[in-house]
Design a protein around this nucleic acid. Structure first.
Lengths: 190, 190
DNA sequence: CGGAAAAAGGAACACTGTTAACATAAGTAC
DNA sequence: GTACTTATGTTAACAGTGTTCCTTTTTCCG
């Protein structure tokens, strides 16, 4: 049980240092002083180890969004705060964000179909958008469509930030702020 | 010279079938009936082969955007058409879009710094946004900021579409249309 | 203390990218 | 036409990856 946690800790560090491509089960084994087969006593395979690492990050991610949400008072402010927290998470943990929402989205905690409303992080977004909707600030759009527009909007900035240096000039957080405000403005007038 | 093209053709097919992770130089060699070292006579390494494949796709991509741009008459319509073409490209060639704009953005033809205005695809966008700006439809935003908002907005939808099945319900093209219109509406009123 | 169970290791298989050394075909200069 | 150069290709190997089978060591407990 102690070893399992140690393996996860080392794996987490390697993921952040080397990214998903350099996330090696053998290297995790070597850095802990064990052989690869020992890792297989605690994890089914490489994906299982990765998923274990990511589970804690999905929880952190949801907590960060929830904390930001609570600091604001009105629906507009809540969503802007969530967007900022979202983008900060991505910029501060680019390798983690990449594997979570780009490279291995299949491994995420976000279920498919209708049930993914109950995902912790997505739930925080949905509730704030519902409040925006109740305040009459989503125009002709339903809650789900508005939420997806907001999410994909900020996700686009985050993806660009963690995949290239193209936003270095304009500034990822600045662009995120502009894009977030602009999306909400569009909803308001649409 | 004939072999070089054959290698690129096979490599392109394998990329589309297996994705970037399954893009294997050895497999390219085997499917063409040669040994791996023969591939190295025509390409410096795996990345060089990949870049050669992607170069043609970047050209196709720019052509698709340009063609869509020419079909519309006003700035608004041009950008909506570009967005639709952009998203259709991503959905029709998900593995290619992934490696171009997510997994290996460093290999793209988009230069860093200020010079990437001259990138063919980005140029098509910039010119349409400039027209939008000249028509007074970008609010208080400058051309570059507006262009990045539009790009990251549609990129967010595309990234979500090619990385998960989360947009299957709402429909990627529908969400792209909504998000595109909403971004332009926000700019108009901002 | 001895046997069962758990933990760890060794060795191998099938892949991957990559390189060095070697063989062979093609074409050219004399 | 012969000798030399160049292009083209192969063989073999190294280092790395995930994974599995089999064996060994350690631990625990009756």
């Amino acid at each position: 049980m102690r070893l399992r946690e140690e393996l996860v800790t080392v794996a987490e560090r390697l993921l952040q240092e080397n990214g998903y491509a350099g996330f090696s089960l053998r290297q995790v084994a070597e850095e802990t002083g064990y052989t690869p087969t020992t890792v297989y006593r605690h994890f089914r395979d490489r994906d299982d180890l990765l998923q274990t690492v990511l589970n804690t990050w999905f929880a952190k991610f949801a907590a960060v969004l929830d904390a930001a949400d609570r600091e604001a008072t009105n629906p507009h402010g809540r969503l802007i705060a969530q967007g900022q927290a979202y983008l900060r998470f991505a910029v501060q943990h680019p390798a983690v964000y990449r594997v979570m929402f780009l490279e291995r989205m299949d491994i995420g905690v976000l279920p498919t179909g209708e049930s993914f409303r109950e995902d912790p992080a997505f739930g925080v977004l949905i509730r704030a958008v519902q409040a925006l909707h109740d305040a009459g600030l989503t125009g002709r759009h339903d809650v789900m469509s508005a939420a997806m527009m907001i999410w994909t909007g900020i996700h686009g900035v985050a993806a660009m930030a963690v995949c290239s240096n193209m936003l270095d000039d304009i500034g990822a957080e600045r662009l995120g702020r502009l894009a977030g405000e602009n999306t909400l403005a569009g909803l308001r007038h649409g």
